[in-house]
Design a protein around this nucleic acid. Structure first.
Length: 270
DNA sequence: CAACCGACCTGTTCGC
DNA sequence: TGCGAACAGGTCGGTT
């Protein structure tokens, strides 16, 4: 479930709590949570490693280690990291115990999340499009990526190749902010519309990060210490079918596009 | 290419 | 109350 703002928030909260600590033991309860290498090797290679940095790329968490290696995590739909939970949550999949006795627990009811221990994170994540808040994500680059593609905007933005980090919530929010219909074919946007899309991607994500991400009612996304984000209070269209559009008052529509719920205002988004 | 579908999984909510 | 269907912040591989 976590999208870029949620993963960014988790990285920011974990970093000061983890950097400098050394792993003493790794326990894996669900082997398929480990993408690579084999679970036994995964654990063996992590013992004795010291965490030097926690960061994010797209929806991936990146834990930098010394001796040099990187632990990547994609939380997918229900993954989360918890610090020192006790007892262990029902659906814990991996536990990292530190030499100072604290623990970092990867919990994941639906088992979609994946951890990978790699030598080089950049090549492991090379397929991802640009970071939406980095300087190299320019209007021109977005325009070039949309150019000639007949895919619908909703689908293209969920795909991580033109821009990394957007998921189902923020695609709806971004398209509403930009005043663009989710069904628009990407190649039909005017230069002015591409500029609006680019600007909406950045402003929506910045606001969500500022709010610590979106914790919906089921609270599947929570901070590593149990707190919640507050961007759900600011969502304009996601999950608000039938409610008035904040811009024009017309009822917000819900429609299934690419097998995912999409929320939009048929009046403001042409 | 683009669209669609099933896999991968479990839990919760909704309708009859 | 019970029970199946639908749905959930994601991605990948296969088919048409």
């Amino acid at each position: 479930m976590p999208e870029l703002p949620e993963v960014e928030t988790v990285a920011r909260m974990l970093a000061p709590r983890l950097v400098g600590r050394t792993i003493r033991e790794v326990e894996v309860a669900w082997e398929r949570s480990i993408a690579v290498p084999a679970p036994a090797e995964f654990g063996r290679n992590l013992v004795g490693a010291r965490l030097t940095q926690v960061s994010r790329r797209g929806k991936y968490l990146i834990f930098a280690l010394q001796p040099q290696a990187y632990l990547l995590t994609h939380l997918r739909m229900s993954g989360r990291y918890l610090l020192d939970p006790h007892p262990l949550p029902l659906h814990w999949r991996v536990v990292f115990r530190f030499v100072d006795e604290g623990t970092l627990v990867f919990e994941d009811p639906r088992k979609f999340g994946r951890l990978a221990l790699v030598a080089d994170w950049e090549s492991a994540l090379a397929a991802l499009g640009p970071e939406p808040l980095a300087p190299d994500f320019t209007v021109e680059r977005l325009a070039a990526c949309l150019n000639g593609r007949k895919m619908r905007l909703k689908v293209l933005l969920l795909d991580q190749s033109c821009v990394a980090g957007l998921g189902n919530i923020y695609v709806s929010e971004v398209l509403w902010q930009a005043g663009l219909a989710p069904n628009r074919a990407a190649h039909t946007l005017t230069a002015e519309e591409v500029a609006r899309l680019h600007s909406a991607i950045q402003s929506v994500l910045r606001a969500a990060i500022h709010d610590g991400g979106t914790s919906l009612e089921d609270r599947q996304y929570v901070f590593p210490d149990g707190g919640t984000g507050r961007h759900q209070l600011t969502l304009k269209v996601y999950g608000r079918a039938g409610a008035p559009c904040p811009r024009c008052g017309a009822p917000i529509q819900r429609e299934r596009i690419a097998q995912r719920s999409s929320y939009f205002c048929a009046h403001c988004q042409q």
